[in-house]
């Protein structure tokens, strides 16, 4: 192999490794979320009732993460298209809880990944709980404390068990 050909190889290898690693972490993240959605939906769909999943037409737009709520209708059903207006309000990286019909018919129906579909149905389920979420929304600090607590604990474990990382003990 000439020196010309050999030159850029290490950089390419590095980039590939980096991409591979990002892909592995991405896959692990999405798989984790997929499992959570499956489990949660399997439980809640039975308890809350699929027929009212689109109950209140509230949209869970983001201000911070879950701060902005818009109110639409109390009578829409899972196939009733109240969603165009609602979907329009849910810009900015938000999860749209309202907008079921539009979302579903404009793409979610064809979503390939379990995560996408799971997130969609989770959002729908969010509408049922939206009155509760709205009510409790100002109390956002617990999330921060939860992340902080888990983060500090993970960091501690990371520091004390570096070679194994944070593998679960089964």
């Amino acid at each position: 192999m000439s020196s010309k050909e050999a030159g850029p190889q290490p950089r390419n290898d590095q980039k590939e490794k980096k991409d591979e690693q990002g892909a592995e972490a991405t896959q692990a993240s999405q798989s984790w979320m997929g499992q959570k959605l499956d489990r949660w939906l399997g439980h809640s769909a039975r308890t809350i009732g699929g027929e009212i999943l689109i109950g209140n037409g509230l949209d869970l737009a983001s201000k911070g993460a879950l701060h902005t709520f818009g109110y639409a209708s109390a009578t829409t059903t899972i196939i009733a298209p109240h969603s165009l207006a609602i979907a329009a309000t849910a810009l900015g990286g938000a999860i749209t809880v309202g907008g079921a019909w539009a979302e579903w018919h404009w793409g979610m129906k064809n979503a390939k990944s379990k995560l996408e579909k799971g997130a969609f149905w989770l959002a729908k389920a969010g509408q049922v709980a939206a009155p509760l979420i709205t009510f409790y929304l100002p109390a956002y600090t617990p999330v921060a404390w939860g992340l902080y607590g888990a983060g500090v604990a993970a960091a501690f474990r990371g520091m004390t068990h570096r070679p194994e990382g944070g593998k679960k003990a089964h």
Partner: peptide, 22 residues
């Protein structure tokens, strides 16, 4: 609030433990 903090701690820890080995 109490429950939300607990759920967040548990789930975030679980997430971190899942991705760490990767």
């Amino acid at each position: 609030d109490k429950r939300l903090e607990h759920v967040t701690t548990t789930q975030f820890a679980d997430y971190l433990e899942t991705i760490y080995p990767t």
